[in-house]
Structure formats: C-alpha cells, structure tokens
Amino acid sequence: MATTIENKQQLLDNYRMMVLIRHFEERAAQLYTQAHIGGYCHLNIGEEATVVGALSTLGPKDIVFTAYRDHGHALALGSDPGAVMAELCGKATGVSKGRGGSMHLFDLEHRLYGGYGIVGGHLPLAVGAALAIQYREEDGVVMCIFGEGATNIGAFHEAMNMAKVYHLPVLFFCANNQYAMGSMPEEDSAVPEMWMKACAYDMAAERIDGMDFFSVREATRRAVERMRETREPMFLEAFTYRFRGHSMADAGRYRSQDEVREWQRRDPIQLLGRRLEEDGILDTRTREDIEKAVDEEVERATQFALESSSPDTDDLYQYVYTEEDQ
C-alpha cells in the first residue's frame, strides 16, 4: 500500500482512535466497579480493529446500526467521548439524554442510528433505513454490525433475505468474537463460519482477520465501494476475540486464561502499532504522545460525565411521544 502523507495522518488517526477506545473502555470498567455505571456494560476491548477498520471507510451520508457493544462505534463515528461517558453514567448530558445507557447510544449528527439490546433485532431496521435511501434515490449505504450469535435468530435470516430481494445497500458486518455469551459457534451454529450463511441469500461474502486493522479496512472499503455501484447487500465476517467478558458481569468460566493470553498476543492495537513502526509512520515518541493525549481525553470525558447532572425526574415522561415534546 502506498503511504502518502494523507494516509499517514489518517493511519495515525485510526491508531489513535483504537487507543482511545481501549482507554475509554478500561476507564468505563473502573467506573462500573465503582457503581458510577449501572446495568449492563459490554466492552469493545480486543475488537478495536473491527470497529475502527470498518467505520473509517464510511462517508457522511452512510448510516450505522449496531448492537449493545456500542461504545467504540459511537467514538469511532465521532461522538463526543464526554457525551458517551455521560450516557454510560446516566446523565442528562449523555448522547441519549440518560434514557438509553450503555446499550442504547444514538447520535443522529454522526449517523449512529442506535445500539440495540435484543440480539438480531436491529437487522430489520437497517434494511428499512436502506429502503429509505433507495426510495429517495440517495447514494448512502447502511452498515449493520452484529455478533455471530445474532446469525442464529430469525430476524437475521428475514433481514438478509429482504435486503437481497429488495436490492438494498446494506453491509451486514458480523464481528465474530467467537462467544455468544458462553457459547461457541461450533456449539450453536450449523455452520462454523458465519459468511457461509450469506450464501443462502446469494450475497457476496468474505471472512477477514478481525485483529488486523488493514484486513478489516481494506475488505470493508472494497465492499462499500462495490455497494455504492451495485446497490446490493454484502456480508463481511471479521474473525476477532473479546479480551474481556461478555459484559462486566461475566466470570469467564467457559474459556481458559491460556486461550485469552494466546489471543492477546494478537492484540489489534499492538499489531497496528508494530506495522506503523515498520513503515516509519509511528515511533516511540509519537506513540507516547498519543497515549498521553488519549489519557487526558478520557479523563476529561470522565470528569464531564461525573460532574454532569442526572436528568430531572420531572422530565420522566419526556420523549415517549413526539408532540408532547413540542
């Protein structure tokens, strides 16, 4: 790949975003154990290459739907880290005004059409958003992100079929982190590789290395560019691994620490960092500067979240119906 000045800066930005997500998630984990964050809290740690590699290929007219492991997706699309952390802490300044929490981030300005908590339930929504794009003859595409566990639910199959039948530009992006809570694909999927399921819907599909930023970004870029021409759905399966539990409430009894350590040797941030060093784009000094700047950014976001007010209980009913807000 040619390393022009432009894409040098872009690669550094991508690397920085992956580091930001990692540090943000580690801080979120702390805030969870300190009870500043309640409910469920699903972290992107280990899956940063799938997040940044995929989302960095999108343009300003594209729309993203994702599941409940959504913090990194919001950050990568440009949401303010303070507003994301505030949402995790249930504050009025959160991206979803404290009504959604960790699982339900939404940022209209940055085209994030939501994090959803019912496995597979958001796939039909992505089909509908693509239908609106087609209806208005716009040129955007929709990226729909989900885990491999979602490929076993009916909504997945209905959405895939409908996207193909209607010829809609939806990129079905499966982040296969190998565990649906504690179940592996070998145990609960008739086929071990998820891309194979797309073949039933006559959809171009590919499996990629989800720990390698370049693998994710190049495959996604190819898919998005092709979809802009064909206006047909496509499927990508990024093979990845989550280093933390399914959520913060996960003792991890279903897998060994040796297995986790083995995968950590392919930490996506270290892989990208080494590659950028080899290419002369990143050096120790720049790396340290990035780490420091990101730490400060996460700390600012955290302070903003902690110092923000909770929503007023007088506003409990706000947002249930549209006209009542007007």
């Binding site: 729309i63 059409y113 929504l125 992505a126 089909v127 509908g128 958003a129 409908m162």
Partner: peptide, 9 residues
C-alpha cells in the same frame, strides 16, 4: 423492522 427503520430515516 423495515417499516421502523424507514420511519427513522
């Protein structure tokens, strides 16, 4: 779901 997604858009 497609109806909902289209309405959101």
């Amino acid at each position: 779901g497609a109806g909902i997604g289209a309405a959101m858009a």
